[in-house]
Design a protein around this nucleic acid. Structure first.
Lengths: 149, 149
DNA sequence: CTGACTGCAAATAGTTTGCATGACG
DNA sequence: CGTCATGCAAACTATTTGCAGTCAG
């Protein structure tokens, strides 16, 4: 079991939710990959090992995990309901491979200065930002090159 | 007629599409606000003045405008199918008011350095980024203060 | 004129809800 | 044991598609 999986289960209980085998399985499925997964993709993964778990439970569990901030969404990857296990670090952003969906985190976005400037210029009270980079990971850009040659 | 509206209509024709009254109306509706609009919201606006225009046409027109890059999506504002007229400037980002949906553009995000660093560190070939700031505009943050006092 | 465009209705996809049963704590 | 969670089916929302009539160029 990887770090974030254990933490996630603890947090779930701390949030007042029960730790059922279904929820374990769903957390496991999300933790078990570096990719971002849509509800349907999570269901598919969970379903392989536990055919009795329904899509509805996946949706409900996602809602809870999102509410507790234990998963985070990605937007750049096409679907707007794609989720990742939240990494133990706090503020962070994603670098997403458009081919395989793999996600790499990074924390230091250095946007504070820009944020202050924008706030001053526009009189907006800025609460946060959404930042994602999109590209191809080494493996996928290699594969692409082979295909084109 | 505002600048972007005229340009948009020209580009539509340049793209090989016909300029119908329905498309004009839809372009007008999106141009006529600083907010980002969902398909349903666009439909509602269009429908007030032109009750005969159907939701389907709104969807189809959005698809075309998006294909030609004449509108852009926002993500931070809740729905992932919210659109804005594309401003004449090229590369740009949005600062979105979470209360009223108003959008302000800015162009210089200064992310090139971060992009290069990430690319080096992760071996990703980076193609682009998604950046949005979320906050409250002056007007809305004033309103909020009044309510709380 | 003619192919592209529109509106309608129907199909499809994605997500949520109500309810009886089951199981965590 | 009580309550919260699950699975099913059905409801609902959002989006897409097929088709016959219409219109911009």
């Amino acid at each position: 079991m990887i770090y974030s999986e254990k933490i996630t289960e603890q947090e779930l209980r701390r949030g007042g939710y029960k730790l059922t085998p279904q929820r374990r399985a769903i957390i496991g499925a999300i933790s078990g990959t570096q990719e971002h997964l849509t509800p349907a993709a999570i269901y598919k993964r969970v379903h392989r090992k536990h055919p009795s778990i329904g899509l509805v439970t996946v949706y409900r569990t996602i809602d809870i995990l999102a509410e507790l901030d234990l998963i985070c969404e990605t937007h750049a990857g096409g679907s707007c309901r794609s989720y990742l296990m939240r990494r133990p670090s706090g503020h962070h952003h994603h670098l997403i491979c458009s081919e395989c969906g793999r996600v790499v985190d990074f924390t230091d976005c250095g946007l504070e200065k820009l944020e202050r400037r924008l706030s001053k210029e526009t009189s907006f009270k800025i609460n946060g930002h959404l930042l994602e980079f999109i590209g191809q990971c080494l493996e996928c850009s290699r594969k692409q090159k082979e295909k084109n040659s």
